[in-house]
Nucleic acid binder design. Sequence first.
DNA 1: AGCACCTGCAAGTATTTGTTTGCAGATGGA
DNA 2: TCCATCTGCAAACAAATACTTGCAGGTGCT
Lengths: 111, 111
Amino acid sequence: MELSEVTGDRLVQILATLANPHRMRILAALAGGQDYVSRLAREMGISRALLQVHLRKLEAAGLVTSRLVLSEDGKAMKYYDIEPFSLHLTPEALAAAALSLTADQSQGDRK
Amino acid sequence: MELSEVTGDRLVQILATLANPHRMRILAALAGGQDYVSRLAREMGISRALLQVHLRKLEAAGLVTSRLVLSEDGKAMKYYDIEPFSLHLTPEALAAAALSLTADQSQGDRK
DNA sequence: AGCACCTGCAAGTATTTGTTTGCAGATGGA
DNA sequence: TCCATCTGCAAACAAATACTTGCAGGTGCT
C-alpha cells in the first residue's frame, strides 16, 4: 500500500491505528511471520480479548489480513498476516492527502 | 527528521499527532509557507482557541516550530513553520521502532 | 475611550478510545 | 464427562482527546 493510493480520511485512520504501542508491537510480532490469536496473546503477555480488539482495528485499517485455518488436530485457528505497506510521510505528501479530507466541520462556515 | 532517529514512544506520539484531520490541514497550510495564528485560524475557518490547541500538539511532537515576531505596526504575531520530516513507514521500520517502546503494562507478566 | 487587531490559557463538557470481565460456542483427548 | 485448546463478542467502566466558552493581557489608531 502506497501513500499516493489512499485518501486523506483513510490516511488518518491508518495513522491513528499505528499510533498505539500495543498495535505497534503486534505489527512487529507479525513482521516476524504470521501467527494466530491465542499464541500471539501468550507471546505478548496480553489478554486475548484485548489483542482481538487491536487486531480488528488493524484489519479495519487494512494493515493486516486474517484467515481461518483448521489445524491438523481439528482446531480452528485464526491466522493474521501483515499486509505490506510503504508510507513515505513528508509535509508535501500530507498536504496532498489533506486535499481529499472530507468536509465535516471546521471549514467554510465561520460565524 | 528521520524514522531511524526516533524512539518507538516518540513515533507513537508523532503518529498520533498526524492522525487528525485538523492537524493534517494545518500542516498542509503551513507547507505553503509560514503563517501566524489568527490568520491561519481565519483561513481555515476554525476558532483560534482550537487552532492553538492543535498547534501546541504539533509543536510538542516536533512537527512545527514557532517564533514570536513583532510586526511593523507593533503587533506581536506568533509565526509557525513546518519542521521538515521524512518518515518512511514500513512493517520492518515499525518493528524496529517497537523495540524501543517503554515497558509500561502489556509485557512480561502474564498470570 | 472604544475598537480592531494580536497573544495566551484554563475550566467544563462532549466524544472517542482503551481495557476488563464475563459469557458462549466448537474440537479433541484422557 | 471433564479439561485443554481454539474462536467470538458485548457490556461496563476507565482514561485520553477534542472542543467550546470565557476571561485576560498587549499594541495602535480614531
